[in-house]
Nucleic acid binder design. Structure first.
Lengths: 196, 196
DNA sequence: CTTTGATGTTGACAGCGTACACATCCCGTC
DNA sequence: GACGGGATGTGTACGCTGTCAACATCAAAG
């Protein structure tokens, strides 16, 4: 046996690290991130409770890895949205809609990525690094939609767009605004069209 | 002894219910809401771990009571902000700034109020009821600032304003935007002035 | 073939939320 | 004024959690 398609292909299990991340993502689709336990993830992956500690310093490190994976998916979705749009302005709106849609589709993952569940400093540093590309995509979309704006105004617009979609996403994810996928997207589009 | 100034003034302790809420609020200023334990609150209040269960169905019920208290403070601050403003438009901006400032000043309480820490259905219903006045204040400020808008547009504006300030508050609270109190207020004002 | 280091397991501990049984004590009734 | 009951607080226990320490296993390097 052994040697899965993944590169790590380790000794006893064959890339347990990736298996743990996958198990955590599976569980996250079924429950809130605060109910997610390290022991539960290990159980899901079919190993003992202590096995994860050979690959992650602690629970926060595992969560940070899962969140990092989430940010990579997130960035992909944001970029897909902009590249499919006919012009920069539509691209910005599409990206905002995609932002909200991602949160709606994977609420637990979104909360893990942006919420306070990861607390230890080292894990947070990793998170910052992993989230940077996705946030750059957002900045890029704003810059493309407002090419004539100077730096200060552009910063204001980035902050506004980000706050707007992040706030809407948060309100939906936390159940403060009940919303199906379609309603969520419609709300995002309506709100984004009010931008200057 | 006995009979504190509060009305409940109960048998053994003298309004343990209020004391527990106060203890929880104290602890919330010192730590994140996810580290807040029911046993810790009981310890802070000087009673046994099971004592809270005479006043709250479970941990969620206590948290909901604390969050309800938070929403009452929140509403007060929002209304203070609007009433001190010279006109409706300035009132809306001042209220948005107050929204963000509240989150900045009491991040753990804010997360408890809007975050996913309370999960049980009954507790969430109480939360919805307690949060309604504060959200009405927000709706009122938007309506006052845009008196000529029809219902649909007003709904869009409410959604936009709420998402905007809530998103900025969330980003600051979750450390995604580092911000002192002054910077947080300035960001809120800058962002709100971009509204139509 | 042996040694070694990476990987996984077992057992233990403290802390958590909470169910159950018991102790205490205020208050209305006689 | 004595008393019984119901509200209030305590002690104990269970299963869950994250994590430490010691041990077992096994692929590969010498």
């Amino acid at each position: 046996m052994c040697t899965l398609s993944t590169s790590k292909a380790s000794y006893h299990h064959g890339d347990l690290r990736a298996a743990l991340i996958a198990a955590a993502e599976t569980l996250l689709t079924r429950m809130g991130p605060s109910e997610l336990s390290l022991r539960g993830v290990a159980r899901e992956a079919g190993v003992s409770a202590m096995a994860p500690y050979r690959h992650f310093a602690d629970k926060d490190a595992l969560l940070a890895a899962v969140a990092g994976d989430g940010f990579r998916q997130f960035e992909t979705r944001l970029n897909q949205a902009t590249s499919a749009a006919p012009n920069a302005r539509a691209g910005l709106i599409a990206q905002g809609v995609a932002y909200v849609r991602f949160a709606h589709d994977q609420p637990a993952l979104f909360r893990l990525m942006f919420g306070p569940l990861i607390t230890k400093a080292v894990a947070l540093e990793h998170l910052d690094r992993d989230s940077a590309p996705a946030l750059d995509a957002l900045r890029g979309a704003v810059a493309a939609a407002y090419p004539q704006a100077d730096t200060a105004r552009r910063d204001d617009l980035v902050l506004t767009c980000w706050s707007l979609v992040h706030g809407l996403a948060g309100l939906i994810v936390d159940g403060r605004l009940p919303a199906s996928a379609e309603v969520a997207e419609a709300m995002a589009a309506r709100v984004l069209r009010l931008l200057p």
